[in-house]
Amino acid sequence: MILVLLDVDRDALDPVSLQVLTLSRGLDPDVQAVVAGDASVAAEAAAHGAGVVHVAEHPGLTDYAPRATAKAVVQLIASLSPAAVLAGGTPRGNEVMAHVAAFLDAPLATDCTSITMGAPFEVTRARWGGNLLEESSVTASMLLATIQPHAVAAEPSAAAGTVQAFTADLDDADLAVRIVERTGAAATGVTLAEARVVVSGGRGMGGSEPFAMLDDLAALLGGTVGCSRVVTSEGWRPHSEQVGQTGTKVAPDLYVACGISGATQHLAGCKNSKMIVAINTDGQAPIMQIADYAVVGDVHAFLPLLLAQARAASAG
């Protein structure tokens, strides 16, 4: 049996959890799920193959509490003895699973792209933001792993999804760290992670003012602005716009890279874009090699031309 930890935030199931359920069905016909405190997502999990959805109950489990969730999962593991416990390679999935691994003093393979059951378990996992894959074996009686987002596509498969509540035995230390407050508005407009078009600038933009051209182009194309790490380090744009290994990962229909060299850590965040347009004075820059359209030239001279034509096209 494979136990899948569901990533739930205020009644909403993270889509990566459905991908993990799908991948798990390929490893073992018996897939069950566990969630802390919140049974609202049971039907959705059942539609993706969860035969049983175990719900950990405790008065303290009112909002996300990583160590408490892990403690509950550890207690469930003791009664179910699954062959593997899997979660999405999301901030919460990785966090709760690391707590589970620490409680059990067991190995944890994060960000896996494939898993083969056996003794030992064989996994392929992402390193360097996915620019490198590692093939490893994991020596353990039960596999603990997280799955890289989009490693598989979610496919529905109806299962019973019987809800089984269990009482988690938690102490103060388990509940010491939990969300006490949320600040900042929920997203309005197009968010970077979900935008269909991302227009990004790098060091080659030369400063914050020329980004006005990127704002304009993004607005015309119904997209949003991104940037490289150099740009956030220089303070030209906020870190929330950074694309890459330590920023946001994007996969839009169109990615326009202006004055960006295409370091591996930047590409880690944008190489899954459907179409890449790069504008760069250096025809040999790495971004130019992976671009669908490479404009060899100065952004300051070319962007006004492009903007004028795009404006004319959308007005005409």
Binding site: E134, I279, Q289, A291, D292, Y293, A294, V295, V296, Q309
Partner: peptide, 30 residues
């Protein structure tokens, strides 16, 4: 307990890059 066997560079999806001039024709093509 996690024994690394080897590292693999994921294959790059080779796609034909169209090189454009930084002029009005290039902008029109985009």
């Amino acid at each position: 307990r996690i024994v690394k066997h080897r590292l693999v560079v994921p294959p790059a999806t080779a796609k034909g890059t169209t090189v454009l001039e930084p002029n009005a024709e290039g902008a029109a093509a985009l």
